[in-house]
Design a protein around this nucleic acid. Structure first.
Lengths: 269, 269
DNA sequence: ACCTGAACACCGTTCAAGT
DNA sequence: ACCTGAACACCGTTCAAGT
């Protein structure tokens, strides 16, 4: 039949829902899953899911994925006081919805129009909460970096702390494969939560400057941009193996196991 | 006046051309220059130049920038044989034009429609030479990596060779500030010229595996993504200082000055 | 057979008309 | 005063109508 692939996939999924094979609350295939099952590009998978979302058949749930069921209330913060029952649009809800869409559909799914549609409001309404998409992306990145839980008395050895920081960042990029691309379009230093992480990385006991933390962060992000697309194995190394190999070597340079050199004075900020 | 900023800038530049302040062949301000002179975003600068290009007042010249003068023949390869005089559209010319546009207007200026407009053909024509934008970007990246001139008998010391490779890559990213973002949307391993560079990096004499070259490349690219936007100095370090600091530490790890450890067997491909 | 204008399905952002 | 449909200026890609 002559349907474009994304419509064909959408109607196959629609049939699965209609037949009861996929029930309300159950997850439909993720974009990644769709690219594998149908052998199509990420953009096609994203569009297929967007069709079903538009129809109200499925919705994006933060931290879960795309599930069957009409767009209802995105789980919000615990209600306090006697506010009226209807969900109130807030900057936080906009940001949370954007994250849910990106988690479900990749970086291509993070658009002003898609966020508005998911919330059931017209696009212009978003501009009451953010000045432009650029600001939304910055808020989204900051919110995601806010997920990182840093131990208050973390490891004090330099190498251990740098490694802990790098692994925390890597875990974040793994959890949100679209994140590295979004980070690449903004200044990480404009995110308070990212700065908090960088400063934790080079806490006083570690005795090195912010440049060390930024170098580490650039390396981790440099590998993480490959997380969104399916790996090709031509290099014989997937992103995880690359991270392990490169991180070990970088730590050797930044924090030799036998401490003999201290990173040059870069100004402790 | 109520004109949007990009039209205001376009008409100011138009006036400079009309008055003779900017003459045929001379360079008009680059997008970077416009962002600084008028205090606007990169996208605005790009749009302003696009207006003038559409009008045929200026054109993008590979390796030079945007210059005054109607869209005529982009300098092509030396003509051989007795082909007719009219410029013939080829995949190579499409790629060269795309590079010129990106050099002149940043990564945002690399669009199918803009390339077609610059060549004076309709957009569909491009699809006779590339299958999709994705392929065009891959070709553009490969062509740019082809600019790197590698010494046939390069440095044989491991550290010296790794450093030479990293600096060659950095120079490329500096020359094409949009490159890192384009590379981030594709697999570097799909570019023959990039693979050539990676293999040169870990030539037999250097005694390490491709993983070393890929680690180095990920680090350099991770810092290079910040090259397109104007720096903020909140971290106290610009990309150049970051590269110097991080590269030195990474080399310490990958190729210690007193060679005592050899990178683990990663398979020499 | 070849070529391309117009369309389709998007995008971010703004304006003007409506309540 | 507030809200939003429709518009504007894009984007990548495809189709169908024209020569």
């Amino acid at each position: 039949m002559g349907l474009p692939p994304y419509l064909r996939i959408a109607s196959e999924l629609r049939a699965r829902i209609a037949s009861g094979e996929l029930r309300a609350g159950q997850r439909v295939p993720s974009t990644r899953g769709i690219t594998e099952e149908w052998g199509v590009a990420l953009a096609t998978a994203t569009k297929a899911l967007a069709v079903l979302r538009q129809e109200g058949l499925v919705r994006a749930v933060p931290g879960v994925g795309t599930v069957v069921g009409g767009a209802t209330v995105v789980p919000g913060p615990p209600r306090r006081g006697r506010r009226r029952e209807t969900r109130e649009l807030s900057r936080e809800l906009v940001v949370r919805t954007a994250i849910a869409l990106a988690d479900a559909g990749g970086s291509g799914a993070l658009s002003m129009r898609a966020v508005a549609a998911e919330l059931g409001v017209s696009t212009v309404v978003l501009y009451r909460h953010v000045s432009a998409k650029e600001e939304l992306v910055a808020l989204v990145v900051d919110a995601v970096f806010g997920e990182v839980r840093l131990p208050v008395c973390g490891p004090d050895g330099r190498r251990a702390r740098l490694e802990a920081s790098a692994r925390a960042q890597w875990a974040l990029y793994r959890r949100h494969p679209w994140l590295a691309k979004s980070v690449s379009t903004m200044r990480l230093s404009s995110s308070p939560n990212a700065m908090r992480l960088l400063e934790w990385t080079v806490a006083p006991a570690v005795e090195c400057g912010l440049g060390t933390a930024v170098t580490l962060a650039a390396f981790v992000r440099g590998i993480a941009v490959d997380l969104e697309d399916p790996v090709d194995e031509r290099l014989g190394l997937g992103p995880d193996a690359l991270l392990e190999f490169g991180l070990a070597r970088l730590l050797d340079g930044l924090a030799p196991r036998t401490p003999e050199r201290r990173p040059p004075g870069e100004g402790r900020r």
